[in-house]
Design a protein around this nucleic acid. Structure first.
Ligand code: SF4
Ligand code: SF4
Lengths: 161, 161
DNA sequence: TTGTTTAAGGACATTAAATATCCTCAAGCA
DNA sequence: TGCTTGAGGATATTTAATGTCCTTAAACAA
């Protein structure tokens, strides 16, 4: 089990969009070039984010995407669920029903213990993702990335705006 | 991202093996029949468990598998990692390196914030899996499964021992 | 000794999912 | 009018999951 690349791409795109001047848009083309990933495929991830209401797009030259709400209102889980889906990472196929000793008509009163634990683990994962916002990472960049690189990057993004 | 079926199968097999009379073995054939899953493929999962030292097998008629240690010493994480692998569910492809504004020689002082969060979420998932043991589920069965089904199942398992 | 049963594991074949590309469409803009 | 953009459908390619088949050597019973 491994998460899709889309997650990494989408998260990074959100962080970049969080640094955009207000009311400006950044195109899929620019985001793809910036991260050196295939534009057409990245586009699918951005469409998912758009459908989830995390970013919003506009058409025409000088069009592209911007965050649909404040970066401090967008959690990692929002982004990951937009890309990866909301369903649990554990799929129970109810193999306990196959126990040859069970009466065919027997109905289980509740999900089996195995599934419950796996689902709780999935929820623990989501809980952690819910705890970090896009703005947290955007802010951390200022501390972790050398000033000159950060400046040049901001200039690059603004130029492609 | 979805976990392999092998996880569900392996966990259930461990729970069944936990209910085995001491010093007895249960074969892949029996485990596959009990859960109604393909014997050959289940065999791969059991081999993984065996390699991980969670179960141990013996040959010949009346051979099969048994737990290699107490059920209370086997966590869900042990089983899942045996089947699914120990590497993080988030693979960082270091796309930040592709930023066109970065000097080619620049070395990042530490993993980027995005990856750190994703790895922490992965660890939160594992932590929850580590908190439950195979014995916990085996014990819970007594409460959740009607007595007659449980008895018949125990008899079935013992008969295939 | 001989034949049967078993786990171990290598070599596939099949199926589903992730990844990637291409094309059309209508909205925005110069 | 012509170019740009995101939206989204269709399809191809690649990789991972799933499933099957086969051989080998150990255990055991007749
Ligand atoms: S025992 Fe739990 S995990 Fe296993 S098949 Fe039943 S419900 Fe699913
Ligand atoms: S920013 Fe983090 S997650 Fe993204 S490529 Fe770099 S290290 Fe990986």
């Amino acid at each position: 089990m491994i998460l899709k690349n889309q997650n990494e791409w989408a998260l990074h795109c959100c962080v970049v969009l969080a640094g955009l001047p207000p009311e400006r848009y950044l195109s899929t083309k620019a985001l793809a070039e910036f991260h050196a990933v295939p534009k057409e495929y990245l586009s699918k991830a951005l469409q998912s984010l758009s459908q989830a209401g995390i970013i919003e797009g506009t058409l025409g030259p000088s069009g592209g995407y911007r965050l649909a709400r404040k970066a401090s209102d967008i959690t990692f889980l929002d982004v990951v669920e937009a890309v990866e889906g909301k369903s649990s990472t554990f799929a129970c196929t109810e193999i306990r029903k196959n126990n040859p000793c069970r009466p065919a008509k027997y109905r289980d009163p509740k999900p089996c213990g195995v599934a419950r634990v796996m689902w709780e683990a999935d929820e623990a994962w989501r809980k952690r993702l819910r705890a970090t916002k896009v703005s947290d990472i955007a802010n951390a960049l200022a501390d972790e990335v050398p000033g000159d690189i950060l400046e040049k990057t901001t200039a690059w993004v603004t130029a492609h705006t």
